[in-house]
């Protein structure tokens, strides 16, 4: 590891996490692979309780794969994912679904389904063959729709909505699941900047006001640095650094993780780290002398 500061903070925060008694969700020494293609080997990650954890990294670094493993969509070929001390795969499916929710990247709204109906489907893990639609189900659905600002859209068809509204509806569905842990796989993809911020604000609200633990995969490092309370930086299936964005986001880290030379300054709005890529000329001109440029920050 070249970047001394990030390496240091990664070890220290890693140790802290391992010492802290029980975080509800963790991956222990997992190897993740699709068929024969190995994405990550011997990866260990802890999700601090009550955190808004964001996983960042370049394309194909394994961040979505890690999220899939944490949400038991992908079974690790080695190692294990623990939820409340149990191996997640061995737990009853509905019990997991009452503890941990996932908003995947690909979700299909069935033809001709209304917003209220779709959000209502989030209640599935709380229902049974003779308990199909309780008053509590109804209340939670109303509440979830209110929190996400789609209460007025209840009777609208999901296919009629804009991208931003639709994403809110899906988040409302995940909320209706009433899970203390909520995992979101790139919730801002395909949204314009206003709606990206909108969705992230909503996530921050859920985290701050309801004390839910959120884990999201995000593409935009600046969004991650602004909203996350805990950041996990991945590259080629390895954790390069983890910790509070203020502690770990440095020019060295960005270069190491993304291979991009940049300056890291304070976000004038929030004081969180803000990554400003170096100008094209500066990057091209110093192909051999990377250290010089990073020191400029």
């Amino acid at each position: 590891m070249r970047a001394g500061k990030s390496a240091e903070s990664s070890t220290s925060s890693g140790l802290n996490n391992r010492r802290s008694p029980v975080n509800r969700l963790s991956a222990e020494n997992v190897t993740l692979a699709y068929d024969q293609r190995v994405i990550a080997e011997h990866l260990s990650v802890e999700i601090p309780d009550q955190s808004f954890t964001v996983i960042v990294g370049p394309n194909a670094c394994g961040k979505s794969t890690l999220l899939r493993a944490l949400s038991r969509m992908l079974k690790p070929s080695e190692g294990r994912v623990l939820l409340d001390g149990n191996v997640i795969q061995s737990m009853p499916a509905k019990k997991v679904a009452r503890t941990l929710g996932l908003l995947p990247q690909s979700s299909v709204a069935p033809d001709g389904i209304t917003v209220a109906d779709l959000v209502g489907r989030g209640r599935y893990p709380h229902q049974g063959i003779l308990r199909q639609w309780s008053t509590q189900d109804e209340r939670v659905v109303q509440e979830s729709m209110r929190q996400t600002g789609v209460a007025e859209l209840g009777d609208r068809y999901v296919d009629e909505l804009s991208g931003g509204q639709r994403q809110r509806v899906w988040i409302a569905m995940a909320l209706a699941q009433q899970t203390p842990l909520l995992l979101l796989d790139e919730p801002t993809t395909y949204l314009d900047i206003q709606h990206q911020i909108d969705v992230l604000d909503l996530c921050a609200e859920l985290h701050e006001e309801q004390g839910r633990t959120l884990v999201a995969v995000l593409h935009d490092l600046n969004h991650a640095a602004r909203y996350a309370t805990h950041l996990i930086a991945l590259r080629e299936g390895r954790v390069i650094a983890e910790g509070a964005p203020k502690d770990i986001v440095t020019a060295e880290l960005v270069e190491e993780v993304f291979g991009l030379r940049c300056q890291v300054i304070d976000d004038p709005e929030t004081g969180t780290p803000l990554v400003v890529p170096a100008a094209r000329k500066a990057r091209a001109g110093t192909a051999g002398g990377k250290v010089a440029a990073t020191e400029a920050s």
């Binding site: 997991v96 908003l103 995947p104 690909s106 979700s107 489907r121 599935y124 699941q177």
Partner: peptide
């Protein structure tokens, strides 16, 4: 049938909702 209803939304969503 209720599990099948959930599966309309894709495997991932239904799996996340606790459908096997």
């Amino acid at each position: 049938a209720r599990g099948l209803r959930m599966m309309e939304m894709g495997d991932d969503v239904s799996y996340a909702l606790g459908v096997r």
